[in-house]
Amino acid sequence: MTSPLHQKIKVTGPVVVTANRLTDGAVIYRTASGQWTTELPGAAVVTTSDAAMALLTAARAEGVRVVDAYVAPVDLSHGKPRPGNLRERIRAAGPTIRLPAPEAANVHVCA
């Protein structure tokens, strides 16, 4: 079986490398300088298989800081990279629903 690190990645458009941050699971993206950012516009965008593989291999080498690094599509049609599919849009922007505002609610018991 081929090691995941030697597998080919099919790249048909612009992609980034993304992962979850180890300490809190936050969504992060690999930057061109080998750092991580929580902001997609700061991510390194590549367009070839070899470049994506190089980015991913370097990312995976940092197993202590990140979890489950993978290649995700982005959309460049508006200039800066935007998530390339719904799953990535939700990962980037959070749930599409309004989250409860717990302590703002005026909760009282009137019995």
């Binding site: 979850n20 809190d24 699971g25 936050a26 969504v27 197993g63 979890v67 489950d68 799953r87 939700i90 990962r91 959070g94 749930p95």
Partner: peptide, 22 residues
């Protein structure tokens, strides 16, 4: 511990990694 080793242990305790967080 690497993630493969740890994942097995966290899953014994109800800890998942989801889209945005644990």
């Amino acid at each position: 511990l690497n993630e493969d080793e740890f994942k097995l242990l966290r899953l014994l305790n109800g800890v998942y990694l989801q889209l945005h967080a644990y």
